[in-house]
Design a protein around this nucleic acid. Structure first.
Lengths: 213, 213
DNA sequence: CATGAAATGAAAGTAACTCTCAAAATCATG
DNA sequence: CATGATTTTGAGAGTTACTTTCATTTCATG
């Protein structure tokens, strides 16, 4: 499952420790909390897993858990691909139609996260389907992404990012992409997420006509 | 603000009471809880309003409040236009393009709810913007609506309502429509919700091209 | 190693919900 | 209208996520 915090070469003074001991400890704690949470959820399910248990397994106090993550759902969901997505999107040629740019970016992002940690992507989608609170938080974070998407769409269409049209487009895309994730989880993760996403972007670009395969 | 529970002709034995005393009381209680909630929220804001206060003002016990509404957010948001929307959608001619059908239905629904109780529509949109928990619940209920929308889209395009394409389209529409509501609230409810919705449906139908006004 | 700053833990508190059970209100009868 | 069955309510105790406060520990730095 989720990689352990690989304590690679714990004592090689000059090479790794660009960060102070404090910073490194914080990162470790964060990881510990997250892996403890994932493990407990797999064992017992989301609801049955309390913050106290998480704290105990991660060997920190409950206070500390809350200091690192504002809510229980955040432990599962937090991690920011957003900046990456935005950067990637800006990197695409400016004259490329925005839908194509988006396609490329999503492909890249999904490939990356799949290679990085395939389990987590699945667990999240699964919890998104099963647990309303997680789904909510998921949606919130997608909404955040939607705000970034506005900027990108605005740049590429010469519109105001705060215009109704841009906002609606961005949010419609977000809604569609979220549904892809739900669909994927509900259908036992069959048919690579990347391909599903592709199909979703197609239908959002060209609209839903009568069936034609 | 919200209409009082108009006790019209409180004692006309034969004409109104098709329902037993029990049923009528339940309806009254429900209304009482809701109006108490709206009033308190207006006075103090959402977070500062506790279930205990609501119970007190509605003259019921906190237990009863929870018996009527599973969560605090539901007190604000519950009420089902969904069946109406679906019926309306089915009532449209079967050969009408589904986007047109949807346009008509949304117009009808918005006009109705605006005439029915304009305050509530605004309060909800406003809380949807301000309070994350409400926004979440709002989104959940839109998701529900999205499921119905699947059926309608499937019927009109001869596709499987559970297909990725249909699901994504439905959810994209939901996302877009939700954004309209947020936009409306954030821009001080200017530019009738109906017209904004119209513009949103347009852009979702034809896509977001370069600006052209 | 001393001093200041940051991170942690302990503890008490709040508020949304859940569960259980007994009392009260309604309903269906004879 | 009395009575027993059924439904609805309220009281109370319990759980848990989250907050706030404050003393203690841990690290950074001169």
């Amino acid at each position: 499952m989720t990689r352990m915090t690989a304590a690679q070469s714990p004592y090689s003074p000059a090479d790794r420790p660009r960060l102070g001991l404090r910073e490194r400890k914080k990162i470790k704690t964060r990881e510990a909390i997250r892996t403890a949470t994932y493990a407990l959820i797999k064992e017992q399910g989301y609801d049955a897993t309390t913050i106290e248990q998480i704290a105990e397994r991660a060997e920190v106090s409950p206070s500390t858990v809350f200091r690192y993550f504002p809510t229980k759902e955040d432990i599962v969901l937090t991690d920011e691909y957003d900046p990456l997505i935005l950067a990637e999107l800006r990197a695409r040629p400016a004259d490329e139609p925005w839908m194509d740019a988006l396609r490329h970016v999503m492909r890249t992002a999904l490939d990356l996260s799949e290679r990085e940690d395939p389990e987590v992507l699945r667990l999240r989608a699964h919890l998104g389907v099963q647990v309303p609170a997680v789904r909510s938080r998921y949606f919130e974070s997608m909404t955040q992404t939607g705000r970034l998407l506005r900027e990108a769409l605005a740049e590429r269409t010469g519109r105001d990012p705060e215009s109704l049209e841009v906002r609606v487009s961005a949010m419609a895309l977000i809604g569609g992409m979220m549904e892809v994730s739900m669909y994927w989880a509900e259908n036992d993760f069959e048919g690579g997420l990347r391909d599903l996403m592709e199909r979703a972007l197609d239908v959002m670009e060209h609209g839903l006509g009568p069936e034609k395969p």
